[in-house]
């Protein structure tokens, strides 16, 4: 099995980085930690992308906007004075309903169309959702509270401190949810009949019909699930940045998440996790190195604008040119 090997190598590399970074002044260690933590959020969105790709063989560009939509629903229900947990449930349910509706109206009629058409259709969905958000909620930023407050009773930052970086409770919750959902999905695809049926549909929809599996039912299931996953990711991520604006998840998360999924091989659930971690660390350490770089006596100050986005572009290009099937993918 490749998964444990790749996981071990990645963990060893990050460990080595932390070990060498420990002696460096203004060193990379908080950045590495931050990168790993960001990686979990990328992985969470990447899970939704992998799910849709496994089920229907298309890239879902609307996955990020499902997250923004979930966050807006949560914001709306919180302003109505509902308790947080009920807000989350209603927000996920609301996004789920919209995902199912979009599947029925847009995706189902295109089920026989070329994959590139479905890709353009998901782009149209994402843009339309952004447009509706702008029309209803306006461009003004809003703030969304965390599940647990980021400050404890004494007014100090809550959470645990690792390598000079305080990790908020929200990130720890995101990590837990991510691990739980990833495990659940892996179990679902490998151990349940429904999961196998979904995989079969994506591989050969005609043969699946012949053995009596309803293709529309599978499509509905996949898009509903991915909308719910997207909403959960949005609800967990937006309080971390604190500001909720239209298209926030598409702008900040969708591209790193896609890159994470591609690194992992697009069909691999552990791959989404590993790709997310790699992208998070590369981006964060790249930002540190692009800002200033100390080695021994010398310090280089390189201010490269947008180094995080540049890192993603370089990583994605290299992975696709050198190993298009990704680290853990079974097919290109």
């Amino acid at each position: 099995m490749r998964t444990p090997v790749v996981t071990f190598i990645l963990a060893a590399l990050i460990g080595l980085g932390l070990l060498f970074g420990a002696g460096v002044e203004n060193g990379p260690n908080p950045f590495i930690t931050l990168g790993v933590m960001n990686g979990f959020v990328y992985g969470l969105v990447a899970l939704g992308l992998v799910l849709v790709y496994k089920g229907t063989r298309v890239f879902n560009f609307a996955q990020g906007e499902f997250g923004t939509l979930g966050a807006y629903f949560l914001f709306f229900f919180l302003t109505k004075g509902l308790p947080y947990w009920l807000g989350i449930v209603l927000a996920v349910a609301g996004t789920l309903v919209i995902g199912l509706g979009l599947e029925r109206v847009v995706i189902r009629p295109l089920i026989e169309a070329p994959r590139i058409n479905v890709l353009v259709a998901t782009i149209a969905i994402a843009l339309a959702l952004i447009g509706i958000e702008i029309l209803i909620a306006r461009i003004e930023p809003r703030s969304l509270d965390s599940i647990l407050p980021a400050l404890d009773a004494a007014g100090d930052p809550a959470g645990i401190t690792i390598f000079g970086l305080t990790i908020e409770p929200q990130r720890l919750i995101a990590l837990g949810v991510f691990g739980g959902l990833g495990g659940l999905l892996a179990w679902f695809f490998s151990r349940t009949d429904l999961g196998l049926a979904v995989l079969a549909t994506s591989q050969d929809s005609f043969a699946t019909k012949v053995v009596g599996i309803g293709v529309p039912r599978m499509s509905r299931f996949i898009w509903g699930l991915s909308a719910a996953l997207g909403a959960i990711a949005g609800i967990l991520y937006v309080p971390l940045t604190g500001t909720l604006t239209p298209a926030v998840m598409t702008v900040n998360i969708l591209i790193p998440a896609f890159t994470a999924a591609v690194i992992g091989g697009m069909t691999s659930l552990p791959g989404a996790f590993i790709g997310g971690t790699i992208i998070g660390v590369v981006q964060s350490v790249g930002g540190w190195a692009g800002g200033h770089f100390t080695l021994g006596e010398q310090t280089w100050n390189l201010i490269i604008p947008g180094v995080e986005q540049a890192m993603i572009f370089v990583v994605l290009l290299l992975v696709l040119l050198a190993r298009p099937q990704g680290l853990l993918g079974k097919e290109a």
């Binding site: 298309v58 890239f59 994959r115 590139i116 890709l119 591209i255 896609f258 890159t259 591609v262 490269i304 604008p305 947008g306 180094v307 995080e308 986005q309 540049a310 993603i312 572009f313 994605l316 290009l317 696709l320 040119l321 298009p324």
Partner: peptide
């Protein structure tokens, strides 16, 4: 020449983000 279809679309999107955030900020 090497990357096609969905993956090329993804590359172009990433390139756009990179250009806007890096090149257009010079």
């Amino acid at each position: 020449l090497r990357i096609k279809g969905l993956y090329l679309a993804l590359i172009t999107l990433t390139y756009g983000f990179f250009a806007v955030n890096s090149i257009f900020e010079i």
